[in-house]
């Protein structure tokens, strides 16, 4: 019995790390959705671009520095974030500006087409060879009371917590954060109050790109190979965002972590003990999604919207 318990605990920690990545991607959706009511289906692709760009910078810098060390990874991360800023600005110009007042359907299709473009463009530029991602922590692990935790998972969890904290602080305590909140509440009223709404939108897209690219940087070392299929993970972050309540930042985090744990545990211990879970473990997030939408469409933290005619 204790074996089962340690197994579950072990997988839960790995699940929390995966869930933190889901949470970061979900945070990207949430930021954009809150401010502009655009649902960005390309967040997973932004993450994938982040992983590739970071890989490119790491290989370039390690060539320059003559080997891999901590500074190489830091410099690559820094350059990736600068790339993310420009990327976000470009996305704002392509997707957000022309489609501001279009129906939901067109916007969803536009972001899907953006996702297709990004995925195929990345595959075209990177070439057919799958790349092996480099982890800054190697395979090192920490032993704690029978549970083995990989340093990478720990780093993912810690950096996710730091990022979430920064965003929380930003949204509640800074001028720009409050301006964003006001814009998401009512963009016309915000404009009348003197908030530069266009710049707020641009900033939101930049933030979403930064979050996406950082989640890609964090996720890449967890994957065995770097290829474009990792963008499908972005789709799995939708159930996370909906479980937490779409448009709520704490909801995105909690939903992401819960889904990460559910997925990892069902793939590990539960599939080992129950044959039928083995059949459904890769679609379990979608079953959760449909269940949540049937039972409580507003999610855990969402507030029911009342539509006035």
């Amino acid at each position: 019995m204790s074996e089962l318990l340690t197994g579950l605990l072990q997988e839960s920690i790995s699940g929390i790390a995966l869930g933190c990545i889901y949470a970061l991607i979900a945070l990207g959706f949430t930021l954009i959705y809150k401010a502009t009511e655009v649902v960005n289906f390309a967040q997973g692709e932004i993450m994938m671009v982040g992983a590739y760009v970071n890989f490119f910078f790491v290989t370039q810098f390690s060539g320059m520095a003559g080997g891999l060390n901590g500074w190489v990874f830091l410099a690559a991360l820094f350059c990736s974030i600068i790339f993310a800023v420009f990327f976000g600005i470009i996305l704002d110009y392509i997707i957000n500006r022309p489609l501001k007042d279009e129906p939901v359907f067109s916007i969803i299709m536009a972001t899907i087409s953006l996702a297709i473009i990004l995925r195929s463009l990345t595959a075209m530029i990177a070439g057919p060879i799958s790349l092996v991602p480099i982890s800054p922590f190697g395979d090192s692990t920490i032993q704690a009371g029978g549970i083995v935790i990989s340093v990478l998972d720990l780093a993912i969890i810690i950096s996710a917590i730091i990022l979430m904290g920064l965003f929380f602080f930003f949204f509640n305590n800074t001028r720009w954060g409050i301006a964003m909140k006001a814009t998401s509440e009512d963009s016309e009223a915000a404009q009348l109050m003197g908030i530069p709404v266009k710049q707020v939108y641009r900033m939101v897209w930049v933030f979403a790109a930064i979050v996406g690219i950082i989640s890609g940087v964090l996720l890449a070392p967890r994957m065995a190979l770097l290829d474009t299929t990792m963008s499908y993970l972005g789709l799995k972050a939708f159930p996370a965002a909906i479980l937490g309540g779409f448009g709520s930042i704490p909801g995105a985090v909690v939903g992401g972590v819960i889904l990460g744990i559910i997925e990892t545990v069902s793939m590990g211990t539960l599939s080992f003990h129950f044959a039928w879970i083995k059949e459904i473990n890769d679609i379990i997030v979608w079953i959760v999604l449909i269940a949540v939408l049937m039972i409580r469409p507003d999610g855990l933290f969402g507030i029911a919207k009342v539509k006035r005619v």
Partner: peptide, 22 residues
């Protein structure tokens, strides 16, 4: 690359249609 180029053109056509010719 063989497959990717088609997909890329698709995405482009789709985006252009949505933006310019809804």
């Amino acid at each position: 690359e063989a497959g990717e180029f088609q997909v890329f053109i698709f995405g482009l056509i789709m985006l252009l249609f949505i933006i310019f010719q809804p």
